[in-house]
């Protein structure tokens, strides 16, 4: 599907989500409560079949943490960016999608490790790189004692 067709299709399919044409890829903003259901639908709807999660990242915004999912369909070759905001910035929680796209298992552990986002129902949510005594280094209010360069 082209971006325009995808935009129309997603707008029709997901009434609760906010779909907009983004700069490069179509973006879909979903509510945290609908995340898992939307993910399953994005993967299993034959016309969409987003089976390949090629990037999962966390962003620290002033009011909330945002999780960004870059999805591609290996069959149709179209791409969508799914975004979800957590309700609470300091104790962010969001459902896991690791049962939909297996690769999310490690990506979510990374986001948990560096930003402190907890993924509900994740089967193995341990810190990936750092030990348990660390804070969450990619949060904007994290203070790095060793850093010399300050901006």
């Amino acid at each position: 599907m082209t971006n325009e067709e995808l935009l129309a299709c997603l707008t029709g399919e997901f009434s609760k989500a906010e779909v907009k044409p983004g700069k490069q890829y179509v973006e879909i903003m979903v509510n945290a409560a609908d995340l898992h259901e939307t993910s399953v639908q994005l993967k299993n709807t034959p016309a969409l079949s987003f089976d390949y999660l090629f990037c999962l990242s966390g962003v620290d915004f002033p009011e909330s943490m945002q999780i960004v999912y870059h999805l591609e369909s290996t069959h149709h070759r179209h791409i969508v960016v799914m975004k979800v905001n957590t309700a609470d910035r300091l104790d962010p929680k969001v459902d896991t999608v690791s049962d939909v796209w297996q690769t999310a298992k490690y990506h979510e552990r990374e986001v948990y490790d560096l930003l402190g986002v907890k993924f509900n129902n994740h089967t193995d949510l341990r810190r990936l790189f750092l030990d348990d005594t660390w804070g969450f280094p990619l949060r904007k209010d994290y203070k790095d004692e060793v850093r010399i360069v300050e901006r």
Partner: peptide
């Protein structure tokens, strides 16, 4: 167990 040579590049990039 990964991360033995994780060099925190993302964090360093924030100030560069």
């Amino acid at each position: 167990h990964v991360g033995y040579i994780h060099s925190g590049i993302e964090k360093m990039c924030e100030a560069l």
